[in-house]
Design a protein around this nucleic acid. Sequence first.
DNA 1: ACCTTCCAGATGATG
DNA 2: TCTGGAAGGT
Length: 888
Amino acid sequence: MSTGFDDFPFFDEEPTPRKPASGTTPRDADMGAPSPARPSVFDSETGAHSGANPSGGSLGIAARAIAARDQARTPDYLSGLNPEQREAVETLDGPVLVLAGAGTGKTRVLTTRIAHVLATGRAFPSQILAVTFTNKAAREMKERIGVLVGGAVEGMPWLGTFHSIGVKLLRRHAELVGLSSDFTILDTDDVVRLIKQIIQAEGLDDKRWPAKQFAAMIDGWKNKGLDPSQIPEGDARAFANGRGRELYAAYQNRLKSLNACDFGDLLLHPIRMFRANPDVLRDYHQRFRYILVDEYQDTNTAQYMWLRLLAQRPSASKRGTNPPNGRQGQAAVAPDGAPPWSEPQSGDSVNENKSQQINICCVGDDDQSIYGWRGAEVDNILRFEKDFPGAKVIKLERNYRSTEHILGAAGHLIAHNEGRLGKTLFTDRVDPNDEKVVVHAAWDSEEEARAVGEEIEQLQRNQHLLNDMAILVRASFQMREFEDRFVTLGLNYRVIGGPRFYERLEIRDAMAYFRLVCQPADDLAFERIVNTPKRGLGDTTIRNLHDYARARDIPMLQAASDIVLTDELKPKARKSLLDVVADFTRWQDMLDTTPHTELAEKILDESGYTAMWQNDKSAEAPGRLENLKELIRSMEGFDSMRGFLEHVSLVMDAEQNENMDAISIMTLHSAKGLEFETVFLPGWEEGLFPHQRALDESGRAGLEEERRLAYVGITRAKRRCHLWFVSNRRIHGLWQSTMPSRFLDELPPAHVEVAEAETSYGGYGRGGGYGQSRFDKQEPFQSSYSTPGWKRAQANKTDATRENWGSRSGHSVERIGYGESGPRGKTIDGHLVAKSTASEPSKFAVGDRVFHIKFGNGNVASVEGNKLTIDFDRAGQKRVLDGFVERA
DNA sequence: ACCTTCCAGATGATG
DNA sequence: TCTGGAAGGT
């Protein structure tokens, strides 16, 4: 077997299956801790853990689990779960779908379930596959499992995002899909540039057929798991005079010759690889005993296929009874045809594993599916029981986050959706003092921002922290007005979302240098920096070079080093290019001999890139230099340049400054998974929310997704939830009069109150259809919020809420994840963020126990500013930035 | 290589 | 209405 599993010590020594015959109470022998004869991550790790064990004693988790069971007691980690959560944790056999409503302890269930699998000795850490969508979720999960099982989490190499696990699979088996294992991962920007080249090379007008649009199409196809040959005819015809399919194929070829993958390939290549190599797939079937999937409602078709392949061991009977492509009729699956479910079924390769099933557990909430536009198929979760026959579905409906009013409002709203699995959240913690959800009206968006600002200040005066408040908008253009207002008021705020650190120009340039050094075939990187800084290598030279490379089918860097030996170029260009080639050759030679941070600095200095920004007189230049320093600093946490590159392409996040008290401004989408004491939801108007385009493009499905988004918004609030709508909003520069959102009318009166204007105008707006469902009514509708009374109140309110603000000192703004081009006209830049975080004392102290996503747990050995030296339990001593570690 | 002018696009945003 | 990007001119 050539699958290269050597680094997984336990692969060849799987625990014997411990599935109890009855499926209920395990027999003693089955529950035993890993036998002493077997080398066990668990045994070696439990020692570390037991020190922290409040119940004392030196027993490992598994041993304690047994003891607990023997005494008919509950292991620590299970106590405190409610009955449903506990069922979700303890139902280990067979497929399980956990429908976890907002705030019902989803992550807790997932992490405890993993701990339970480990503690009962059912699998080793390396035999658990746990996938999330975001790095953040993966990180949180790792951290929380760490709390439960101590260092054993270090042994979980297969906990990560779909993409990071895809990379891992692909690095091992790259040759099976025609790549070499040092392939490059292209981000969206690279992809667009590459496609543009292809479009131009095909002699097409790149204005008429924008690369960006085609990139989006390809992405859509890949989300559905479609190869060029499988895309629907209509789609293929829709681009470039019917040449869509051809271009897609050309793009894939180009990727292959670049030894590169886009994000979609990180899923699709493993799928192809598994299909074409059943023996490899079988190895993974044996490895992954437990599969856990977070946010299952967000999976797209490709992810679904990927999971199916891994989760469904082929049954001894060929096709039919329990088909691996287990869908009843393909129409239900891929409406646009070309369902790629045709896994090669080698019926003969199967029998030996009858007894071992793979236990998949998907956790999600159909009511929070808000990424349909990104390819997510809610249907995956709705169909779970059909896909996985015998699946157990467990609903978590006990909410630990919000007041009854908030839950009542959200629940009533979401009940207007059809096609849900149906959950009703409830809470025990009922307090007569709880505020109802409040609906406010404003005249226009400016007044909306002003009034929200006043409410915030009022809360502040009552000792509420800004950190506990958030403004969640439907579209990012809404943020501007709030930002403007907060700058005026001197209210600290942070904007979350948007372009990220590594998407900044200077970071991408620097990364291109590093990429080219590590991966000489990376033509995109080459073209990006060959004339940056300016070296007199203009369009003509590049074109020459390009042709030369294409004609010989060699990478451009190679072509460059060849062509300088000829006299095809003008002397000036030739000299220049010669220098570039010499530089890269030298850097490549140093790759294995020079510490990578040192080399990185050398590259940036010797290439003249640093000098380029030093000589730049523009306002952003100092910030860019600062960012470059930050980049180098962040490399310290990695042991090689390659490792770092991979991290950046998949994982790197902007760090955030939690020390500052600031209100968060973000979109509803980026708020998913977060919670705040107080939530402001502005812009509840028809056309904006629900967004017109969602309605136009996806009709009822679009409306339902918008409604789910509203549901997500409301359920972010723990105690206070304030909804706003305005009568006038500027859209594309034009003032438009707007109608209150239909969602407002779908809220239950019992849990909602209408904010009165300061001068009481009582009585308006409440009658009529307020709170009634207009569910079946067709457009156009008349909202009860657009009565004359409301309008009067709004006009009135403008005066009633006149300013009483003063400017404040110490105002501070943070833009998390925004580069130099955040929403327009800001006086904020990345510089400010980098500076403020760098100058602040580290929040860590010597001796602190910390967690690093790559190196795991460790103790802080020394602190210098924001640089920490950490003794990692497994990885030894490293220097890392404090932003990369979290308190363990 | 740089500056000006023109024009399309303007929902959401993970890897 | 505004803006980022690109074409086009100098």
